[in-house]
Design a binder for these strands. Sequence first.
DNA 1: TAGTCCGTTTTGAACGATCAAATGCTGAAG
DNA 2: CTTCAGCATTTGATCGTTCAAAACGGACTA
Lengths: 343, 343
Amino acid sequence: MADKVTIADVARHAGVSRQTVSNVLNAPELVREHTQRRVLEAVQALGYRASQAARQMRTGRSQLIAARIEPAQDDGINGFVFDRFLHGLTESAALAGYRVLLYTAADHEAELATFDDLLGVYVPDAFVLTSLDYGDPRPAWLLEQRIPFVTFGRPWGVPPAQRYPWVDVDGAAGTAAATRYLLDAGHRRIGFLGWPAGSGVGDDRREGWARTLTAAGAEPAELAELDYRTDDGAPHGEAAARALLDRDRPVTALVCVSDSLALGALQAGRGIAVIGFDDTPVARAVGLTSVSQPLSEVATRCVSLLTRALDGNGAGARARETQAYDTGTEVLLRPSLVRRRSA
Amino acid sequence: MADKVTIADVARHAGVSRQTVSNVLNAPELVREHTQRRVLEAVQALGYRASQAARQMRTGRSQLIAARIEPAQDDGINGFVFDRFLHGLTESAALAGYRVLLYTAADHEAELATFDDLLGVYVPDAFVLTSLDYGDPRPAWLLEQRIPFVTFGRPWGVPPAQRYPWVDVDGAAGTAAATRYLLDAGHRRIGFLGWPAGSGVGDDRREGWARTLTAAGAEPAELAELDYRTDDGAPHGEAAARALLDRDRPVTALVCVSDSLALGALQAGRGIAVIGFDDTPVARAVGLTSVSQPLSEVATRCVSLLTRALDGNGAGARARETQAYDTGTEVLLRPSLVRRRSA
DNA sequence: TAGTCCGTTTTGAACGATCAAATGCTGAAG
DNA sequence: CTTCAGCATTTGATCGTTCAAAACGGACTA
């Protein structure tokens, strides 16, 4: 009921001026300790909260981070990863004094329009991008407008001139660990169930497997024989697993680029060892060993890259006019292997 | 670059006053058509966008809808439903001129604190609640503060005095349809794999199954025999299915309260018919027939209930001081059955 | 002709915060 | 004893919008 406590109310209650209250909250070093205490007590007593709208008006900063929520894929498993990431992002952002604003867009072009719209009206301080693909126009657009942003996902095939902060998970390290784990368990014919070439993420994960087998003495010819490529989805995984099992020298274990493919492989039966990727609920449900991404840490790092850019370079609105944040802010995190029944 | 076009710029460009521009945009009926055209052209030409912060300052409305993003459950399947809902919400809200602001909270108590915090700072115009449970304190709190809100989920066991707008999916109708479908396919021993009694959602879904079997002539004793209750999760589902199959008169089909339980039942093998609930990615992946909630419609209806309350009753800030919106705004939607291989 | 009324447009104030500059005060230097 | 630097605090202006009330001009009435 006693809503709308303004900074003037606090000032009156504490017997000081508005500006002093503002200073206590935003630049305490300017205010004598004794005064600070008195002001803070008044703030407490009245339950004062700075109005974000008023602040934004003067400073140009909204304390909002915009993130896109993707149309839960048919695949849906991707959705899980994003969902957890988003949750972590909300949490970390809150700790840093930011809130997450959602938006959607059907495609890249629509997304650029949405950027423009959001910037005109709500003026988020920064954007978080996910699901980067080859030739993605979004980073370039944001760079050009000098809007701070981070991406969850490395830039794949982008000219090095366009550098920007990103956080990603080292997929190759994940599949390498999975492969090593299978080798240590005695497997010698370890196949890889991956997506068709051309996806940054997919190729990266394949590379970790290939690298590890090669180090263990596998010939390129053998690798090619063990490398199976198909679209995502359990049915495809099942068919692929069958194909690999029906060969002259069948595989005894499979490293998969996704949990859906792994699930399919499991359903093909024959009791081979299978390792998936992403540690989705499906993996948990069916006891599938899977590579797990540290999503909540990814989120934390995203936020800390952003705050460094936003709070470091002297207030957002201004940062945009001077220069983008320093480059070289790239974070690559290691995933971990979650052991379950399947391997 | 040419950012920060203010209403004054537009006014100057069109040769009218600020207020006239404001009127053209917010109350066109007050302005002569000829003037309108001129102003709109200026708006176009300059790319003017009203600053949300400035507007909020004057009107008290933020055009923000706050929604909680839940910590992706261990179960994780619930997360999918919420995820799709959230996506729909973002989309519908955008169409109505609102944006979705995320927040998290560990438990109900923390959530009330977050409400208070958000209301003090960002001042969302409304809240959307999900995952209501028995004795949930959140609706009462919001009602008391006269903050508009909707819930996705019926109020379970709440005194009728506390009425508020909600949208929900008729779970009983879903399981009833599933059961009827199995009956039509010739099944006579149709079990129900549900959660322990005491969950509003779970009991509701069980009721649809029981109702349909009863109508088909089943005795209460038989029902009790076919009704199995266990915690959520595929392993539990598998165990439960085994138990039901090992009885004297084994079931030939199972209606399940969730896809995770259904997945477990499928893994128990023996080729019985299985129907799940929620049509999650897992269901799609393994070819599980499942009851699908119209999540994007749920979202749309939520938004329309909210806008009715917000835009109807004359501006938010004011609505809060006068009275809550009319009650009797309750929407119950029918789910649909998605047929796949499992039944 | 003066007075009213109405539709249209303009003017002034206000929302609540922060910035920039001014003020008062204390103590050390000249 | 004055001057001035430096800290602590206050004052006035401002961000961009909308509300409330005033002003304007033409038509209509008395």
